[in-house]
Amino acid sequence: MPAEVLVPIRDETDIVTARQRGRELAAAHGFSKTEQTLIATAISEVARNILAYARRGEIVLATSEHQSRPCIVVVARDEGPGIQDVDVAMREGYSTSNGLGMGLPGAKRLMDAFDVVSAVGKGTTVTMRKCVR
């Protein structure tokens, strides 16, 4: 398995592909089945956000090391409309896409580290990391 996997997100089948690739990568790096499921679910949420808000984008899956533990780093990138106020978007139940408003805050809870960088009119990049316990 290569160290970095890029999954373009253009339609909903790509959401399934992205989370399957994430699970495979996590399995290959010693994550437990439960952790694999948490990672796959978080990928699903951020991939869904790309489709809902930007229509297209990409997910890059990579591995790294943090305090000598293997980690998975997920970067979800789009060039969509961007997020006006990231703090508000991170609030539970806040959604502008008729969703549940669970996506970003939910994905954050599933991972160890979570960061959103967004510029209106330029796009959004979500970076999240989870390490083997």
Partner: peptide, 13 residues
Amino acid sequence: QPDVAFAMVQLGL
């Protein structure tokens, strides 16, 4: 499944 249930709880679903 157990893992799925756990992830759903974490996600707040």
